[in-house]
């Protein structure tokens, strides 16, 4: 088998970010008085970062993959390339899999000049997933400190942002927050693109 020729013959078309959308998780609208298991409904209003998209309340899914918040814009120097280092603080595994899906042929995140780094020393952004755990507290801090400045911190998933249904959040502050349990690959990419201000 010549894999190179096989690869050329079986070409896969990378998709646009709007080509595939899902209802769960997506931006929810409306109000609800349901007794939310994660307290994501305060006086009937939705708090995105706490939501695990359990589908039990009266909020309706819009299908829009924009469940993210940009708290600080990314520095100009990262507009041409951004290297991500993922760290698992205490996940169920689904956030990890969605993160690796960024590099699947469907999403091919490299086309947006977003790459993976194998070490925090070469990374521009730390991607934090999962709840706070005693065992990973020091490791998370060390990874952050090992990164060269300026650095960006991205939290993905309800666990990292608020503790979700499992525990407490992994870090106090993030530059970019992507809600979802787990967030979709499209919403993670869109969040980074928005924070960079360029494609």
């Amino acid at each position: 088998m010549n894999w190179f020729i096989n690869g050329v013959k079986n070409r896969i078309k990378t998709q646009g970010l709007e080509d595939y959308t899902v209802e769960q998780p997506s931006f929810l609208q409306g109000t609800s008085n349901y007794e939310c298991p994660t307290n994501a409904l305060e006086n009937g209003r939705w708090i995105m970062n706490k939501c695990i998209f359990c589908r039990e309340c009266d909020l309706t899914a819009t299908g829009k993959q924009n469940t993210f918040t940009v708290n600080s814009e990314i520095q100009d120097m990262f507009k041409k390339s951004l290297y991500l280092y993922p760290i698992d603080s205490g996940t169920c595994g689904a956030c990890n899999v969605e993160f690796t899906t960024l590099f699947s042929p469907q999403y091919d995140t490299n086309r947006f000049k977003i790459f993976m780094s194998n070490t925090p020393r070469h990374a521009d952004a730390l991607v934090v997933m999962g709840v706070y755990t005693r065992g990973m507290e020091k490791i998370l801090k060390e990874a952050y400190e090992a990164m060269p400045a300026p650095k960006v911190v991205i939290g993905i998933g309800a666990c990292a942002l608020s503790g979700g249904i499992i525990g407490t959040s992994a870090m106090e502050k993030y530059d970019i927050e992507v809600a979802g349990c787990p967030p979709t690959p499209a919403s993670i990419i869109k969040a980074i693109i928005k924070a960079r201000g360029v494609k």
């Binding site: 894999w3 190179f4 096989n6 690869g7 079986n10 896969i12 595939y20 690796t100 899906t101 590099f103 699947s104 042929p105 469907q106 999403y107």
Partner: peptide, 17 residues
């Protein structure tokens, strides 16, 4: 083996869908 790896990643995503 990057080619089959990416093809399988593609399939994994198709099954997720």
């Amino acid at each position: 083996f990057a080619v089959p790896e990416k093809q399988l990643l593609y399939l994994r995503e198709e099954v997720a869908r």
